[in-house]
């Protein structure tokens, strides 16, 4: 439906559970009718535009157990409702996982980072403008994609993994967490499960309506980052139209372990090129044992975008992605 802009919020209930059990109970009871609220920075636009119409919001930010950064035996655990500003400024994260601090520190604008949460940044919905406009496309449960057609405006859309829908992941922290081999902790009334960051996100081929594996009634409560990549050499870069607010045209998050001149191991992940953060395992394998240099970077550039299927207006993402991967490798 063509979006009608409203300035006021729709009539909708609000729950502010103070503890985990109440929150999980509410989430399970309300199911799809309940909208999980982190910082809400991606929520109120949907609601004000009447393009998503849940009947209640469940605010999770009052639950202290899901907030904050703690050191664990083998890494750190970040509560899902920790704000992005807190993450970007946390000394522990800055010193050990600078990649995440950098990614969190470049999201949207200062005020959004002050309120927006890590969980919210990870599970925020895609920015395809047709979808955001409230059109009933595939992702909204319809039977058409407006972006992938000869005349569709698809400059911001996917190079890879398109299956009817060509939307991309908008998150800056998601590629960083995939690169850091993080684990997502998902809770529900029936218990807790852990999913590797890489498998947390799903593409349209598997689920065209949702971008994550979260089921009804489940809440992302924490992110665990193992020490595997602590203090590695990191590289993060986001290219967006404007330097504030805008979502990445392509972003890259990479971690390298080197011994002497050579790369022992690496993880390179690109965002905004697929519906899920895209890990470049071929490139990672190819650069092992080589130096972080121009020649290595140039040698694997084409490999980074192998299999890309550009749409009409996003051809530029191919060189952009190659260049960002090259930069990451060059360091």
């Amino acid at each position: 439906m063509v979006a009608t802009s409203h300035d006021v919020m729709p009539d909708i209930e609000l729950y502010q559970p103070a503890d985990e059990a109440t929150a999980l109970d509410l989430a399970s009871r309300l199911g799809n009718e309940g909208w999980l609220l982190g910082g809400g920075q991606d929520t109120y636009g949907w609601l004000k535009d009447r393009n998503k119409n849940p009947s209640a919001m469940i605010e999770l930010t009052q639950i202290d157990a899901w907030k904050g950064i703690t050191e664990t035996v083998d890494g750190i655990e970040i509560g899902a409702v920790t704000t992005l500003t807190d993450i970007a400024r946390d000394p522990l994260i800055q010193s050990r996982f600078g990649l995440l601090a950098e990614a969190a520190g470049i999201v949207a604008s200062p005020q959004i980072r002050n309120v927006g949460t890590l969980g919210g940044n990870l599970i925020q919905d895609t920015r395809c403008w047709y979808y955001r406009r409230g059109l009933d496309c595939y992702r909204a449960g319809g039977n058409i994609c407006y972006a992938d057609s000869p005349e569709g405006l698809n400059r911001e859309h996917a190079l890879f993994g398109a299956s009817r829908c060509v939307a991309v992941t908008p998150s800056d922290t998601a590629p960083a967490l995939v690169a850091l081999d993080a684990t997502m902790v998902i809770s529900s009334t029936s218990g807790q499960r852990e999913i590797p960051a890489q498998d947390f996100f799903v593409g349209p081929d598997r689920d065209i309506l949702n971008m994550t594996v979260l089921n009804e009634g489940e809440i992302l409560t924490a992110v665990r980052i193992p020490n595997t990549w602590a203090n590695a050499e990191f590289y993060f870069e986001k290219v967006a139209d404007r330097n504030v607010w805008d979502f990445a045209l392509v972003n890259v998050a990479a971690a390298f372990r080197t011994s002497g001149e050579n790369i022992e191991d690496a993880r390179i992940v690109c965002g905004a090129v697929e519906c899920v953060p895209r890990r470049l395992q071929d490139v990672e394998a190819a650069i092992r044992g080589r130096s972080r240099s121009d020649s290595t970077a140039n040698a694997v550039a084409d490999m980074a975008t192998a299999g890309a299927r550009p749409l009409n207006y996003n051809n530029f993402k191919v060189p952009l992605m190659q260049n960002l991967v090259k930069r990451a490798i060059r360091g």
Binding site: V2, A3, S109, R127, W129, Y130, R133, Y146, S149, E151, G152, L153, D241, R242, N243, V244, W245, D246, F247
Partner: peptide
């Protein structure tokens, strides 16, 4: 450098609605 004013040629609907699509320069631009 920034402000594209577009209509969707497919459907004729305006495509530069909201500041996230009608990109006013910010401090950092």
């Amino acid at each position: 450098a920034l402000e594209r004013h577009l209509y969707d040629p497919q459907n004729g609907i305006p495509a530069s609605t909201g500041y996230w699509q009608s990109k006013v320069p910010t401090y950092l631009d």
